[in-house]
Structures are given as C-alpha cells and as structure tokens.
Amino acid sequence: MTDAHTDANGTMSSSRLSQFEAEVAKLKVTGGGANPERLGSQWGIGLTILGFVIAIIAWWSALDAKGDNAAVSALRAEIFGFIGIGVAIVGIVIWARNSITRYLRYWIIRLVYEQREQTEQLVQALRDSK
C-alpha cells in the first residue's frame, strides 16, 4: 500500500481496485483444472496406448498384405505404423513431463516441510541449551 495506491482518506485507491478488476478480467478460467499434471499424465498414457494400438494394427495389416497390391498395402501399413509409434512417443513425452513435474512439486513441498521441521528442532535445541 504505497501512497500511489492509498488516497488521502487512507482508503485503497480506486486505481488499485481498477487494476485488480483488470487483472481479474485477464484471468484464464480453466473450469476446474485443479490437478493439471494428473490430467496430463492420463492424456500421456492414453496417447501411448493409442499409438501402440495403431502400430500393432498396422503391423498386422502389413503381415496380411497379399495379392497384386501387397507392396502398396504394406507401405501404407508401414506409414500407419510410424504414425502410431510417433503418437506413442508423444504420449510418453507428455506422461514423463507431467509425472516429473508432479514428482518435483511433491518433492519440493516435502523438502520445505522437512527443513522447517529441522530448523524448528535446531532452534528449540539452541534455546534449551541456554
């Protein structure tokens, strides 16, 4: 509450209120994405499974390719196979990114709590020793 944000009557200035309203208007409403990492991990796993399913189907299609157009069918199946593997890789990357973020988030919270606990114990020990 600098003077710029506090008027002569000591009340929060309308400029701060307007600024707040502007900030609120800019907020991106996610509609309840309370746990984006978990959602990201689930999407990643889903994409990975989907990718492998596409690749396996393409592989079976390639094996089944018969007749005059066997080479063309096999090539088409091969392309689908690569697309499937690509989707699976994207899924793995999304899953890894979100899982690591989630893990690190919990890790840092745990670290903060442990350090807080240790410092409190240390301070208590120092006070007791006096």
């Binding site: 600024q19 707040f20 609120v24 409403v29 996610t30 994405g33 807080r116 410092t119």
Partner: peptide, 29 residues
C-alpha cells in the same frame, strides 16, 4: 463479479489475492 472458479492459485496471487497461511508459511532456513 467475475466467475473465477477453478483459476490456479498462482494466477490469483498475481492478480492480488494474497493468503497469509496458518503457521506463517515462511522459509525457516
């Protein structure tokens, strides 16, 4: 008056909603 249900806590903090948590929430070290 604007619906902000589900907005991330860091976005709310940047906008100007600030929480002083129970147990102070400082970094003791």
């Amino acid at each position: 008056g604007r619906d902000v249900t589900g907005v991330a806590p860091d976005a709310l903090a940047r906008a100007g909603v600030c929480l002083i948590p129970e147990g102070r929430g400082i970094f003791p070290n």
